[in-house]
Design a protein around this nucleic acid. Structure first.
Length: 263
DNA sequence: GGTAATGTTAGACT
DNA sequence: TAGTCTAACATTAC
């Protein structure tokens, strides 16, 4: 799930639930999800405080703790949030790794089945971005800066968009959609993109992300001209009806239409 | 049993 | 140096 549009969903959910609630207790049931932060530090940073606002940077959700520090959540491939009062027999709660209890007796669970996500307490968002050497956020980067970055590398355009140090927020799924919408082959070298293509990519990132957020980041709800609902080998291309192909790029599966997406 | 899955990263290789 | 590939992390589903 968790690429940029999915993290926006988590942010909405967090804002509607845990925001402005006073933290009573923090428990970590598996500290492998903690990154550069001890369970003690996490508890000490949150206890007695409340989350005053949230932001998103790339695939990270950041919650400000009353101006003192920032709680950072990354969801890996299988991360999730759940706010609840009573433990029911919910299967979702099987993989809770961090649990925040609030004074209103509700709890916020950070769920991470495959442990590929991580949680930390940061001094500031800027600090975190610097430490991880993240590129500009995909929705914040200017058209000119994107064009400049693209021109500066010969790597494949698919690898570029998945590389969080180049541009932060897009992953395997949404990169496929953006490239499909632009009619660009995933294996095309960034340096070979012309000005028009670079501009088109910038515009399309915004269009695809806005569209995804509007549809609750659920590709099943996407309309007929989108690739994601039919992202599978041999599926019909939404544009030409030809067969969608699969290829490996940067160790991940890229799905594309060989007729509509050219090098 | 084998493989792939929305992510990231270290190390090997060209 | 730049870029690609593989394995590893942990778990589930087909």
């Amino acid at each position: 799930m968790p690429e940029l549009p999915d993290v926006e969903m988590f942010r909405d959910y967090f804002n509607a639930t845990a925001l402005h609630q006073k933290v009573a207790k923090v428990s970590v049931s598996d500290d492998r999800v903690l990154e550069d932060t001890s369970a003690r530090k996490l508890a000490r940073s949150l206890k007695g405080k409340e989350f005053s606002s949230t932001r998103r940077y790339g695939k990270n959700l950041l919650a400000d703790v009353e101006g003192s520090c920032v709680l950072r959540l990354h969801f890996g491939m299988t991360g999730n949030l759940k706010y609840y009062k009573d433990e029911d027999e919910d299967e979702e709660l099987e993989h809770v790794r961090v649990l925040v209890d609030f004074e209103n007796s509700y709890k916020l669970a950070y769920i991470c089945q495959r442990m590929l996500g991580n949680v930390s307490v940061e001094e500031s968002v800027e600090d975190f971005v610097r430490r991880k050497e993240l590129g500009p956020d995909a929705m914040e980067i200017s058209a000119d800066e994107l064009a400049e970055k693209l021109a500066g590398t010969r790597q494949s355009v698919k690898a570029f968009f998945m590389d969080q140090e180049k541009i932060a927020g897009l992953g395997n799924i949404y990169t496929d959609e953006v490239l499909f919408q632009c009619g660009i082959h995933p294996g095309k070298s960034c340096a070979k993109l012309d000005e028009k293509e670079a501009k088109e990519l910038h515009k399309t990132i915004h269009r695809v992300v806005d569209y995804a957020v509007k549809h609750r980041a659920d590709p099943r709800k996407f309309g007929g001209n989108y690739l994601l609902p039919r992202r599978g080998e041999g599926e019909p291309c939404p544009r030409c009806g030809g067969k969608i192909k699969k290829m490996k790029v940067s160790g991940r599966s890229a799905y594309f239409c060989p007729k509509c997406q050219k090098k």
